[in-house]
Design a binder for these strands. Structure first.
Length: 679
DNA sequence: TTGCCTCGAGATCA
DNA sequence: CTCGAGGCAA
């Protein structure tokens, strides 16, 4: 027995090395799995023989903290949505216009229709046909490197089945957990006295983020389906449908339901058929994705910052459920706004259990005639946020109708937290607590100040903020910087170590930058963007405090509302005192940090320049536009004094004349390319 | 908004 | 063992 265990350990270690270091596994994942499981089983049976150097005990090869991040080869964008057939038709009109189709010819546009998989978006990189890296979507620019986990997903080929694979291929697709696998995985988890997963989507996304004790059963039940090739597409392919075929030949699973539709009406019919087949599919889907099939047309249309213009996600109607509105609670936000929140009898909808939903404001409650005790219909809109659709008036109980139970509770005239009078300004939907020192506002402001894009105070979370305010340790924002180990002792879950950590975090947070400070203050209408603008314009806090309202209002991108709010804040004596106190308590402003464009992004040769295109260019306009935007420039439609360059192709239109009139420089394509190249 | 994962550290019990 | 914080994904 001892011998067999030693043998297995050596084998597993050897294959680990082949797999992770050499990138040349000899065993299939399944065979490796068998080996490893035998070892685990024997060790479990004979705990006496378990040693710490066994590969089953090892976490070594994995990063100690979280996953590394890595940039995507090109941004992973999202898709525009259509919620109904009319929005689909509007999409088709946009497409036709961009392709300059005369009316009536639109039926000639081919769309590839693919089920919209409800999983987790992933990019796989193949170098010379070998799987080398897999990333989550992340923020679209940068994702988490989950390669180690993806190597155990059976439908991700280790090698592309290609004669002559591209140097680099970037295959994008979705990781899903098929329903059958979800069921058996949960059965097995229950058998092992683990909590079953709530829904396949979260189980799949969670599987990718495991870092210890890779769960082979879990990863083995995932499925990857490919849907695009962001890099490495052979030049002879000119349609999305051909790319899908290629991915299939390379060894990827492609959704079998995929079809090409001619024109929008056919697309709408496909979508309806898919909806009725939804329940019979092996994986969860939440709509249909339509892409313009021809790649030259995609290029002509181009891509916006957020999403390509040549694709759309036609979503299925959101799942709805009925439940009882048990109470309406009133929350006080950072700005003092009172928000009514529905407390619901928990109900499953769209794979999760919903028990809260915002009711937004008083008008909303009245418009829908929502009363405590009502049966209401809820749905999850836009994938995420639960909303109250309507009241089931036919199910309204007599006692609710007659108002014997608490009905249609208006937002109170007194703040539920501090009892100060509330106000609702003429023409505004929000009701506010007028007390600037309201503890609820203070708590939220403190949370905001501690947030990652503000002063970034590590470890200062919601519970701690509650305690600090309730204990009276913080009565205004600057008080956080007066905290010390002594004052913290006595708070819940606050031992010596936690206290020291918080003090250290505050010490780090004391050194910050002007934009972060301006954002951290929670000035109305000042988010990260406006804070940056203000900091760019004024440079120092002293300048900021000395700024005249007209100067603030004159900043490009800042309108009268924001300017008014900023000026008022800066003029307020108690705010000025607060700012001074921050300084006294050690807050210092360092030079502004590098803009996020810093390291990996090449220098932006066209930064801030505005272009107008005219005439026939050698490439589709969308392409030219993309390359200008990729270099940091902007392309607009009309020539004005703000235009920096007009790019003129073959027989230019009136825009070239206008440019000449306004004295705007005119470039040909050669000139443009030189400019992009940085000359 | 919910569900998932990880980490550090406090709380609890043998 | 449990909790709080933090991060990620839809």
């Amino acid at each position: 027995m001892r011998l067999r265990i030693a043998e297995l350990r050596d084998e597993v270690l050897r294959h680990d090395a082949l797999y992770y270091q050499e990138d040349a596994p000899e065993l299939s994942d399944a065979d490796y799995d068998v080996l490893r499981r035998e070892l685990v089983a024997l060790e479990t049976e004979h705990p006496g023989l378990l040693t710490s150097d066994s590969p089953t005990q090892r976490v070594g090869a994995l990063p100690a903290e979280g996953f590394d991040t890595a940039p995507h080869r090109s941004p992973m964008l999202s898709l525009d949505n259509a919620m109904n057939a009319d929005e689909m038709r509007a999409f088709e009109v946009r497409v036709s216009k961009l392709l300059e189709h005369p009316d009536g010819e639109s039926s000639s546009i081919d769309f590839v229709a693919e089920p919209k998989l409800d999983g987790s978006g992933i990019e796989l990189i193949y170098a010379k046909g070998v799987f080398v890296q897999g990333l989550t979507r992340g923020d679209g620019q940068t994702g988490e490197d989950v390669t180690v986990n993806l190597r155990h997903v059976p439908s991700i080929p280790e090698r592309l089945a290609a004669e002559d694979p591209p140097e680099i291929a970037s295959v994008r697709g979705e990781i899903v957990l098929p329903l059958a696998a979800f069921e058996s995985l949960n059965a097995s988890r229950v058998g092992r006295e683990l909590k079953p997963f709530e829904n396949p989507r979260n189980a799949a996304a969670g599987s990718l983020r495991q870092i210890h004790d890779i769960d082979f059963e879990r990863l083995g039940s995932l499925e990857f389906r490919g849907y695009s090739l962001a890099e490495g597409c052979p030049a002879e392919l000119d349609r999305q449908s051909q790319i899908l075929d290629l991915l299939g030949r390379w060894g990827f699973i492609i959704s079998p339901e995929i079809e090409t539709c001619h024109g929008v009406e056919e697309a709408i019919r496909f979508h309806e058929q898919l909806l009725s087949a939804r329940g019979d599919l092996p994986v969860e889907i939440d709509g249909t994705v339509f892409k313009v099939d021809r790649i030259d047309q995609q290029e002509t249309m181009g891509t916006l910052a957020r999403a390509p213009r040549w694709a759309i996600a036609f979503k299925f109607p959101p799942e709805q459920a009925e439940t009882v509105l048990e109470d309406i609670e009133v929350q006080v936000g950072r700005t003092g706004a009172l928000t009514p929140v529905a407390r619901l009898r928990p109900v499953r909808v769209g794979g999760v259990t919903v028990s809260n939903a915002s009711l937004h404001n008083q008008d909303e409650i009245e418009r829908k005639d929502i009363r405590i005790g009502d049966w209401i219909m809820i749905q999850r809109a836009g994938d995420v946020i639960p909303q109250v659709v309507r009241v089931r008036l036919d199910r309204r109980h007599e006692s609710v109708a007659e108002g014997r139970r608490l009905v249609r509770r208006a937002l109170p005239s007194q703040c539920p937290v501090c009892d100060s009078p509330t106000v609702r300004l003429e023409g505004e939907a929000v009701t506010r607590c007028a007390n600037l020192d309201c503890p609820a506002q203070l708590k939220n402001n403190l949370r905001h100040l501690a947030g990652r894009s503000a002063l970034d105070v590590d470890g200062l979370g919601e519970k701690l903020v509650d305690q600090l305010v309730e204990a009276g340790l913080v009565t205004r924002l600057s008080d956080v910087f007066a905290l010390d180990e002594d004052s913290l002792s006595g708070l819940e879950r606050m031992g010596a170590k936690s206290a020291a950590n918080l003090i250290a975090a505050l010490e780090r947070a004391r050194e910050t930058t002007l934009p972060r400070l301006l954002f951290a203050l929670g000035i109305r209408h000042v988010g990260q963007t406006v804070a940056e603008l203000l900091a760019d314009r004024f440079g120092t806090l002293a300048e900021m405090l000395a700024a005249r309202p007209e100067e603030v209002a004159a900043i490009e991108g800042i309108g009268p509302t924001i300017a008014e709010s900023v000026s008022r804040f800066m003029a307020d004596p108690s705010n000025r005192e607060e700012l001074a106190r921050f300084g006294e308590l050690g807050l210092v402003l360092a030079a502004p940090e590098e803009k996020p464009s810093g390291e990996d992004v090449p220098p932006q040769s066209l930064d801030g320049l505005i272009f107008v295109l005219t005439g026939t260019l050698s490439r589709p306009r969308g392409e030219v536009k993309n390359s200008i935007e990729a270099a940091g420039g902007k392309v607009t439609g009309t020539v004005s004094r703000k235009t920096h360059y007009v790019v003129a192709g073959e027989d230019p239109g009136s825009k070239a004349r206008k440019a000449a009139d306004l004295g705007v420089e005119i470039l040909d394509e050669t000139g443009l390319n030189a400019l992009i190249a940085g000359e």
